[in-house]
């Protein structure tokens, strides 16, 4: 769990994934036959060169949603933009960190006493929110903060039995699972790609697929769990703690039908709980990859409640089960004709 904690706590807003990459290289670089970082920051590790195909590519993205400094006010407050999909309702009264020195700051909110009833019915628009680092002038802020600096949520990883609390399970959980998978000996040549800028429109995955040109791609994700309170009789899956989440189709790609069947059957065989992801929700690097090369894509995720917010919950058993399922299914890849 120490590695997962490190990964979740590390800053890695899109475009600033360096810290996550360094942790991964240090933790598992020694298991790889080759380690390579491309010009955008995608991290590639390979294993099983020379083995008989198919060539397998595992992908997890290193970036997380966050904020970026847009400009600095005359009074030293920081106006910001969102990087990736963030609901502005989760932002007021949160702690954040900024830039290369990880300066502390808070996103302020007008005191309850000073806001009237009508005002409290409105969502504070993003353009009215500011980060306060305690500076009293523009020049003071400018000593520590530059336009374009990343801002991330100041949330720490904690474990409470099987329940894990952290920011960025989407997709540090996937990064972690891949770090475990690279220790495994697969029967195929495999390339492990920790990609960048997924939250910016699946950018890293696109160029990774163009470089690696694999036959099969397995994306490891942290996806939104939906077992949240509701009175309506609607789909509530995926559920936290009920196993790996398998994609049939999302908004960008149709998962390879044979790979989906292989994953489901392997889970049944091995007694691993599993669940389908709701169709047509979200998108992953697989969507970008199939547009570069015809490849068989599958997406396996852990469910996490409250992704894309400052703090999310995940279940330890889902992580363990997902790793086991992917290992077991990969063993059987030659049994299927894609």
């Amino acid at each position: 769990m120490e590695l997962l904690k490190q990964l979740c706590d590390a800053p890695g807003v899109s475009g600033h994934e360096d810290a996550v990459r360094e942790i991964l290289i240090k933790a598992v670089g020694s298991y790889a036959e080759s380690v390579h970082v491309d010009s955008l920051g995608n991290l590639f590790m390979t294993k099983g060169k020379g083995k008989k195909g198919p060539h397998l590519m595992f992908t997890a993205h290193t970036d997380e949603v966050g904020l970026m400094v847009e400009r600095i006010d005359d009074e030293g407050f920081i106006k910001f933009m969102t990087l990736g999909g963030i609901d502005p309702r989760v932002l007021p009264a949160k702690r954040v960190r900024i830039g290369k020195d990880a300066i502390c700051g808070v996103i302020g909110i007008k005191p309850f006493h000073l806001s009237d009833k009508e005002e409290r019915k409105e969502v504070t628009p993003l353009s009215d929110l500011r980060v306060d680092i305690g500076a009293s002038s523009r020049s003071e802020t400018e000593r520590f903060v530059d336009v374009g600096d990343p801002i991330w949520f100041d949330t720490l990883f904690e474990q409470q039995g099987d329940i894990l609390k952290a920011k960025a399970f989407d997709d540090r959980a996937g990064c972690y699972m891949m770090a475990e998978l690279i220790k495994h000996e697969f029967r195929f040549p495999a390339t492990f790609v920790w990609s960048v800028q997924e939250e910016m429109g699946l950018r890293g995955g696109r160029i990774a697929a163009a470089r690696v040109r694999p036959d099969i791609m397995i994306v490891l994700e942290g996806t939104g769990a939906c077992d949240l309170p509701t009175d309506a009789d609607v789909a509530r899956r995926p559920f936290l703690g009920k196993g790996p989440v398998i994609t049939i189709l999302d908004r960008t790609v149709v998962a390879n039908q044979r790979l989906v069947e292989l994953l489901c059957q392997t889970a049944e065989r091995d007694g691993i709980p599993w669940q389908f992801k709701r169709p047509l929700v979200g998108g992953t690097d697989a969507g970008a990859a199939v547009r570069v090369k015809a490849l068989g894509a599958a997406v396996v995720a852990i469910p996490a409640r409250y992704i894309h917010t400052p703090v999310a919950l995940a279940h330890l058993k889902d992580i363990i089960n997902t790793i086991e399922l992917v290992k077991a299914a990969a063993e059987r890849l030659r049994e299927v004709k894609l």
Binding site: R71, M200, R206, R211
Partner: peptide, 19 residues
């Protein structure tokens, strides 16, 4: 400061080919 789409050719060039 620009987020995911700059609205310029940078959007396309930066992810063409191997990046």
């Amino acid at each position: 400061p620009l987020t995911s789409f700059t609205g310029t050719e940078a959007d396309v060039l930066s992810i063409s080919g191997k990046g």
